[in-house]
Design a protein around this nucleic acid. Structure first.
Length: 306
DNA sequence: ATGCTATAAGGCATCGATAC
DNA sequence: GTATCGATGCCTTATAGCAT
């Protein structure tokens, strides 16, 4: 579940903080001097560590740190284990470190090539959708959602593909909170040890699933006599087909209308959009097989609670 | 169906500190 | 020195809920 993390442990939280004593514990240790301010940097395994006068910053992937790859995702107990390992190796209490970035991620084995699923994943409120050749991004200033081909990414980095993934379609879905972690999760604070409680761990999974859910899924619309019981149904199906054909264009048009202040009241724009959403997700449209498969696989994470 | 309002979420400006 | 990053508080916007 949890992949990359950024931790900050302030000098007060450490107690007897002495950067020079910790430096020998790091690999590739180096000293930096700028404007007569001295700091140190180095790493333990894959984690990048900076020792500053004000405190310690640690950045990197926790499952890689604990298991040397991020195929496995961290359970709640292994999260706690990674904290103990880190605290042990650096001899500092990292359970009280604050989290400044948190990535929740999972790799799914799919029936088709990862890229084929991108088209079914439409807009998401508050995010800008950006397509790349082998990845799909949703961005705003504090969060990021990414879908990508995990094997391709591994190969790009020149790492050997793990045997369990050979010849598999690996779709990775990541949800990254890059700013204001505690606010985003609605927690009073976001220290490392806040991740270990059952409630919070479940929060992470819920948030991850909710973000997936919030992405509008593109459906295929076909004229369907089954659900046609009134003239209104007929109209609605025709409308729904038209909107489906327009795709995102309809929403762009509403944006433009809004820019021109075309409607009398500001809430009309969101209501119109909601109407369109309802229409295009109604009975007369059909969920694609691809989305059904992805839905099933992502939502099955609920079973991995705890 | 239409209008008003509260709420919640992200954006933006700013500040202080770090990185280069 | 300047560019960048993270935290914070306030502002703006989208939307849901309620009332007409």
């Amino acid at each position: 579940m949890v992949d990359t993390i950024h931790l900050w442990l302030s000098e007060e939280a450490v107690g007897n903080y002495n950067p020079t004593a910790i430096l020998p514990l790091l690999e590739h240790g180096a000293e930096h001097k700028r404007n007569s301010i001295v700091s140190f940097s180095g790493s333990i395994q894959n984690l990048k560590v900076s020792l500053l006068k004000e405190g310690v910053s640690v950045k990197g992937s926790l499952p890689k740190y604990l298991f040397s790859d991020n195929i496995q995702t961290l359970s709640r107990s292994s999260l706690e284990q990674s904290c103990e390992k880190l605290s042990d190796e650096l001899k500092m209490p990292f359970s009280k470190a604050t989290i400044s970035r948190l990535d929740i991620a999972q790799t799914f084995l799919m029936n088709h090539a990862p890229e084929t699923y991108f088209n079914c994943l439409g807009e998401s409120k508050y995010f800008e959708r950006l397509t790349q050749p082998s990845s799909l991004y949703y961005q705003n200033t504090q969060k990021q959602i990414v879908f990508y081909n995990k094997i391709k990414e591994i190969q790009k980095k020149g790492i050997k593909v793990p045997s369990v993934w050979l010849n598999q379609n690996t779709l990775r879905y990541e949800y990254r909170i890059t700013k204001r972690v505690s606010k985003s999760l609605k927690w009073a604070h976001s220290n490392f040890d806040d991740l270990f409680t059952e409630k919070n761990y479940m929060d992470l999974i819920d948030t991850y699933l909710m973000q997936y859910d919030a992405i509008k899924k593109n459906r295929s619309v076909t004229f369907n006599l089954e659900h046609m019981n009134s003239p209104k149904d007929f109209h609605n199906q025709i409308l729904s087909m038209a909107y489906n054909q327009l795709g995102d264009e309809a929403f762009q048009m509403i944006k433009e209308l809004k820019h021109r202040k075309a409607f009398k009241n500001k809430e009309y724009y969101s209501r119109l959009k909601k109407e369109i959403r309802n229409l295009t997700t109604s009975k007369c449209s059909e969920e694609s097989e691809l989305i059904k498969e992805l839905d099933l696989k992502v939502l099955s994470l609920k079973n991995n609670y705890r």
